[in-house]
């Protein structure tokens, strides 16, 4: 157990170090996210000094940016392993496949966290979202939603990276499977910001169930998916 944790830390540190060298993924993903927000803002943003926009609407706009940005993160962190067959080097090592999955997931979540850290304030600024009633509810719902999305994304990135990746295949796989999480988080935001309810336990349970189910499942099938 302790050894696995050390190996996970080592793998994540390695991924982040490679990312820090090139800074390709984070830069790319942030710029893409901001562009998406701007495009959406052109049509949907409130014109003139009016009332701020409901926090509920933020989920739709942010999810578009997170979904596209996230898929790029998943692709990039896995491409690093496929280049020069580095993955085989990991697989012959005394390393549990589950640990490898967790490490990749953590790397992806870190990158997505950086993405969210830049894109969310930009969206709040451009759309004048009013999140003041439930700021923490917003953070918790988004964090849980992204975890579920990343759990699936990490799994499928490993599954399709060895096929000569046809453009958009990963997005096509991951988007529909993530729809429940997008939908559930949107509904929770609606309840919080439109109906003034507190963060609902049932909604949180749905999101948590989604996260746990896909984490567990991915952990199990990750080994199968990696096999050449």
């Amino acid at each position: 157990m302790k050894r696995s944790l050390q190996q996970i830390a080592l793998l994540v540190a390695k991924d982040l170090r490679i990312e820090a060298r090139g800074k390709q993924t984070v830069g790319l993903v942030i710029v893409l996210g901001v562009l998406i927000i701007v495009v959406l803002g052109m049509g949907l943003g409130t014109g003139g000094p009016g009332a701020p926009m409901s926090g509920f609407k933020s989920t739709a706009i942010l999810w578009v940016a997170y979904l596209f940005g996230g898929v790029l993160c998943f692709e990039k962190t896995m491409a690093v392993e496929r280049q020069d067959d580095a993955l085989a080097g990991l697989l012959v090592a005394p390393l549990d496949r589950g640990a490898l999955y967790i490490a990749k997931l953590l790397s992806n979540l870190t990158l997505m966290f950086v993405l969210a850290l830049v894109v969310t304030p930009v969206a709040i600024l451009l759309f004048r979202f009013d999140l003041s009633t439930h700021p923490w509810g917003f953070v918790i719902v988004m964090a849980l939603g992204m975890t579920g999305f990343a759990a699936i994304g990490t799994l499928f990135a490993a599954a399709v990276s060895s096929t000569r990746l046809q453009g958009g295949l990963l997005a096509l796989l991951v988007f529909p499977l993530s729809l429940p999480v997008v939908h559930a988080s949107t509904q929770m935001m609606r309840k919080m910001f439109e109906e003034g309810e507190a963060l609902s336990g049932g909604g949180l349970a749905t999101l948590l169930a989604f996260d746990l189910m896909f984490l567990a499942l991915s952990w199990f099938v990750f080994e199968l998916v990696l096999e050449p």
Partner: peptide, 17 residues
């Protein structure tokens, strides 16, 4: 893998709707 996850998605979609 997709077929398995898609089916497991069904009850979640139900819960969220």
């Amino acid at each position: 893998v997709y077929g398995i996850i898609a089916f497991l998605d069904v009850p979640l979609v139900y819960l969220s709707v």
